[in-house]
Nucleic acid binder design. Structure first.
Length: 483
RNA sequence: CGGGGCGUAGCGCAGCCCGGUAGCGCGCCUGCCUUGGGCGCAGGAGGUCCCGAGUUCGAAUCUCGGCGCCCCGACCA
């Protein structure tokens, strides 16, 4: 059985050859998701959904820790409610799916399938909020939403997707502002700690902000092909929605005030982000903290392995499970060890344990890292402790590697020539001064297919004149081609 | 929604130009063999050739229309 490195290359397109195709191949071959008979809609398969569940659990814990509670609001929103906030409806109108009939009967009022829930939640908040004592109101919901997309891609952009949307109401602008920034911080911490995905946090420009928001913040990650991915957004809605939905409360000074609101969301798109941040030519690489299986054990069938090897493998699995490690013991007989190695590497399992007669003779097992393919023997009685440490190290190494990649693909430029040159070469973030005018922003977008991803939260003084017009720069911003 | 490409077995493809019994590899099933990087041998199952019209004695193949997917742009999480 010669090792045929090129055998499994045929399973997925090499990343360097065609990144988009590589991505699609990984999603399908790793059984994260599949196309469905519904145009633009995908099926999240059990393995992909398991990743989402781990993300959910971790995010949800962070929401609870910051005082939020979960609730559930309706899927359908009456047209009249969506229309209340002018900018909001204008922003979402091209993307909404309409429900016009119930059975055979035409509805008196059309319903939209929620593209987001500000309208329905605002309506309810108006009923629930009367006094400053009712504030802050901190509610999150886990839900599906529908946005009629023209072009779709698995996880990154589908007509229906899963997400969480937080909706809060506060007494003052300052509180709402603090909340929006606090949740942006939660997102950043989540992306970096759990997904090992470094992100740049900042404020969106006027043209890129959420329809109906006063300020939109985002975290932006850099994918393996040098394009940026918006990984989460947090909006300070001001009183835009509270004024149209009549969310009023009696303030401490007895005056009647409109509530200050925020909303923030993260979606299943992040799964796509994880794939494009860490994956390689062999397939997926999952950060241990969101890996459905953190360790796969492959017993080596030799001789009467059922009596000799398998019991040791089962003991190892039990010990790891007891230590809180998510383990898969792959004892299928119809596949060879080599096949299993390739399969679980493709599916991104962070660590593999090979255990055979030779190992058992030495009371050890061979542990192999997915990211570096480094092999190291570990005594069987130390497995649990050693693997926990290895998983933590791997998690950290993935973040470090992604961080280095991002920094290697971030350039600071101060002239228009250098800017255009930077974007012609390998893509990535380009930090450059901008005058703050929308005209320059759209000009760059039209000419360079490059957008301002966001403006740093504490913008340093501009390092020069605007990259586009040369006028005094207002601030340095992050540019990138994006998903 | 513009520009390009592709729809043939579960997956990847050939056949199409030049119309004439639908093929290959992998996978799947049965049995044997064992398995330390996608083992080997033998036998077998599996097809509305994306859909619909048209041309023709005859259409996977030619014509028209539709649908879907992929890639590159404009819009978005």
């Amino acid at each position: 059985m010669p090792a045929k490195q090129d055998t499994f290359v045929t399973e997925i397109t090499p990343r360097s050859e065609d990144f988009s195709r590589w991505y699609t191949d990984v999603v399908r071959r790793a059984e994260l998701a599949d196309y469905s008979p519904v145009k633009g809609s995908m099926v999240i398969r059990p393995y992909g959904y398991a990743v989402w569940e781990l993300m959910q659990a971790s995010l949800d814990a962070r929401f609870k820790a910051t005082g939020h509670v979960n609730a559930y609001f309706p899927l359908f929103i009456p047209e009249s409610l969506l229309r209340k906030e002018a900018a909001h409806v204008e922003g979402f109108a091209p993307q909404v799916a309409w429900v016009t009939h119930g059975g055979d009967e035409e509805l008196e009022e059309r319903l939209v399938v929620r593209p987001t829930s500000e309208a329905i939640i605002g309506t309810m908040y108006a009923k629930w909020i009367q006094s400053w004592r009712d504030l802050p109101l901190l509610i999150n919901q886990w839900a599906n939403v529908v946005r009629w997309e023209k072009v779709t891609r698995l996880f990154l952009r589908t007509t229906e997707f899963l997400w969480q949307e937080g909706h809060t109401a506060h007494e003052t602008r300052e509180e709402a502002e603090a909340e929006a920034l606090r949740m942006l911080g939660v997102y950043k911490d989540f992306a970096e700690s759990e997904l090992a995905m470094p992100v740049r946090d900042g404020r969106k420009t006027e043209s890129e902000k959420f329809a109906g928001a006063e300020v939109t913040y985002s975290i932006e990650a850099l994918m393996g092909d040098g394009r940026a991915l918006q990984a989460g957004t947090s909006h300070m809605l001001g009183q835009n929605f509270s004024k149209v939905f009549d969310i009023k409360f009696q303030a401490r000074d007895k005056s009647l005030q409109y509530a200050w609101q925020t909303s923030w969301g993260m979606t299943t798109r992040l799964i796509g982000g994880v794939i494009m941040t860490h994956g390689d030519d062999s397939g997926l690489i999952l950060p241990p903290r969101i890996a459905p299986y953190q360790v796969v054990i492959v017993p080596i069938p030799r001789g009467n392995w059922q009596e000799t090897v398998l019991p040791r493998a089962r003991e190892a699995a039990a010990a790891l499970t007891a230590a809180g490690v998510r383990v898969m013991l792959d004892d299928r007989e119809e596949y060879t060890p080599g096949w299993k190695y390739a399969e679980w590497e493709l599916r991104g399992v962070p660590l593999r344990i090979e255990i055979g007669p030779r190992d058992i003779a030495k009371s050890q097992a061979l542990v192999v890292r997915r990211d570096t393919r480094e092999k190291l023997p570990v005594p069987l009685d130390e497995l649990a402790a050693r693997l926990r440490a290895l998983l933590a190290a791997l998690q950290q190494d993935l973040l470090d590697r992604a961080l280095k990649f991002r920094d290697d693909h971030t350039r600071r430029v101060t002239t228009r020539d250098a800017f255009e040159e930077a974007l012609r070469g390998r893509p990535g973030f380009v930090v450059a001064p901008w005058c703050g005018r929308e005209e320059c922003e759209t000009g760059i977008k039209a000419d360079m297919q490059t957008t301002i991803r966001n403006i740093p939260l504490e913008p340093p003084p501009a390092s020069g004149g605007c990259i586009r017009c040369g006028n005094p720069g207002l601030t340095d911003v992050y540019f990138a081609k994006s998903y």
